[in-house]
Simulated scan of single mutants.
Amino acid sequence: MRALACTIFTIGAMLVAASARAQTYNPNFPVCLQTYALGGGYIDCSFTSLAQCAASASGRAAQCLNNPYFAQGDRKLPRHRGVY
C-alpha cells in the first residue's frame, strides 16, 4: 500500500511540474525583448537597436532591455590599481 501511494504521488508530481527552459542571452546583440505571458514569457536577444525592439514589442505584453551579456568587441576590463 505504501509503495502504491508513493508511486501515485511521484506520477502526480511529474504531471504537475512545469517544464523549465534554460534562459540564454545572445551576446552578439545589444538589445533584448522580454515578453510576458500566463504560462511564462521568454527573452529574445536578436535586436540591434532599441527602436527595432520597440517596433516588435508594440501592442504586446513586452519590454525592451539592454543585453547584460553583450560582447562589445575587444573591450578590455579596466585594471584595478589598489594597494596590496
Rank of each mutant, 00 (worst) to 15 (best):
F9T: 13
H80V: 13
Y25I: 10
P68D: 00
C32V: 11
Q34N: 04
G59S: 01
N26L: 06
A57R: 06
T7C: 15
A54G: 05
C64Y: 05
C53H: 11
T35M: 14
G41E: 05
T7F: 15
P27S: 02
K76L: 13
L38S: 08
G82Q: 09
A18P: 03
R75S: 13
L77C: 01
N28V: 06
A57Q: 06
Q72W: 05
R60F: 02
R81C: 04
V16Q: 05
N26M: 01
Y42L: 06
D44F: 02
R75I: 09
Y84A: 07
R2V: 08
A18C: 15
N28H: 08
A18R: 14
L38D: 01
I43P: 00
P27R: 09
A5M: 13
D44W: 09
A5I: 11
P68T: 03
I43C: 01
Q52G: 10
G82T: 06
I11M: 05
A51M: 12
V83H: 08
G59L: 00
L50S: 02
M1F: 14
S49I: 10
R81E: 14
C45Y: 08
D74W: 12
A20I: 12
I8F: 11
A62S: 13
A71I: 15
A57D: 01
C64H: 02
Q34G: 01
R2T: 06
R21F: 14
P27V: 03
C45E: 02
Q52C: 03
F29H: 13
D74M: 15
K76W: 02
L50E: 09
F47H: 13
A71N: 12
S56V: 14
S19E: 10
V16R: 03
Q52S: 11
A54V: 00
Q72D: 14
A57T: 07
R81P: 00
T24K: 04
S19H: 12
Y25V: 07
H80M: 12
C45T: 00
A5T: 09
A20R: 11
R60H: 15
A61G: 01
A55M: 02
D74V: 12
L15N: 05
G39K: 11
F47S: 02
R75P: 00
R79W: 03
F70D: 04
G82S: 06
Y69G: 04
M1Y: 03
F9H: 04
R60G: 00
L77R: 09
S46W: 06
L33V: 13
F47P: 07
N66W: 08
S56A: 15
L4I: 14
D74N: 15
C32A: 09
Y25F: 09
G59Q: 02
A13D: 02
